[in-house]
């Protein structure tokens, strides 16, 4: 089982596109990459979950951890997701009220808070 992760810059956002399954085995890889991004000075992050097939509480824990990190730098963490099965996980845990969730990367990078220029 593999987790694919590509990060690129879109305007003032870092967009992390995730592919595959995020569970107790693969979540540490996502955690490390998000910690790395914040330590490199990326405080406005968009995590694109459109190509994620599976997400559990360990993946949610990583996203919450990253949110706390960027918030401590007055940053933001937004998500891209339109998959019902993944959105349901956020709804059950109440995290749909914590994370801004957008239907596309374009919306997320245009509407999510941006770094001051």
């Amino acid at each position: 089982m593999e987790l694919g992760l590509e990060v690129r810059e879109v305007g003032s956002h870092s967009v992390a596109q995730v592919r595959g399954e995020i569970d107790v085995y693969t979540a540490p890889k996502l955690r490390e990459r998000l910690i790395e991004l914040v330590s490199e000075g990326s405080y406005h992050i968009v995590v694109d979950l459109e190509r994620v097939d599976f997400l559990d509480s360990t993946g949610l824990g990583v996203l919450v951890g990253a949110l706390k990190r960027v918030k401590s730098h007055d940053g933001s963490l937004s998500l891209v997701c339109t998959q019902d099965k993944i959105l349901k996980i956020f709804e059950i845990t109440g995290l749909d009220l914590v994370f801004p969730i957008y239907a596309s990367e374009k919306e997320a990078t245009q509407e999510a808070p941006q770094a001051a220029s």
Binding site: S57, V64, T93
Partner: peptide, 18 residues
């Protein structure tokens, strides 16, 4: 400490809901 649900809390909610 910041009021966020822990991983275990989220796990319990998922288990009880699904």
């Amino acid at each position: 400490s910041q009021g966020f649900s822990s991983r275990v809390a989220m796990s319990l909610r998922l288990l009880n809901s699904l």
